[in-house]
């Protein structure tokens, strides 16, 4: 089972006592502000969790896997996530069965 926005809001309600409307609004704003920052070229550093970095990629040759025809992959900007020390350490210990 995957964690969703609805479940994060539910957990805020359970754990902090925010009312459900406030919790939903906060979770929506949280992800919207991250998206807004990244789309204006601003990288995001959330200490303890990780960094969302931006990288500009040059155009490179690609291939349509179906037809084998060569088509260039255009220059683009992408988001990469670099987990922080604390998150890495917490996750490393996970030894359960595959997700």
């Amino acid at each position: 089972m995957a964690l969703t926005k609805a479940e994060i809001a539910e957990a805020l309600f359970d754990q902090l006592g925010l009312n459900k409307r406030e919790a939903r609004e906060l979770v929506d704003l949280f992800f919207e502000e991250l998206r807004a920052a990244l789309s204006t070229g601003e990288q995001v550093k959330l200490s303890g969790f990780g960094n969302f970095d931006l990288r500009d990629k040059n155009q490179r040759p690609g291939r349509n896997p179906k037809t084998g025809k060569e088509i260039p992959i255009s220059a683009r900007r992408v988001v990469t996530f670099r987990p922080g020390q604390k998150l890495k350490a917490r996750v490393e210990a996970y030894a359960g069965t595959k997700q």
Partner: peptide, 12 residues
């Protein structure tokens, strides 16, 4: 909450 989920092997 997000760290808890990942450290328990859950996707987000």
């Amino acid at each position: 909450i997000m760290g808890d989920a990942l450290s328990q092997g859950s996707r987000i």
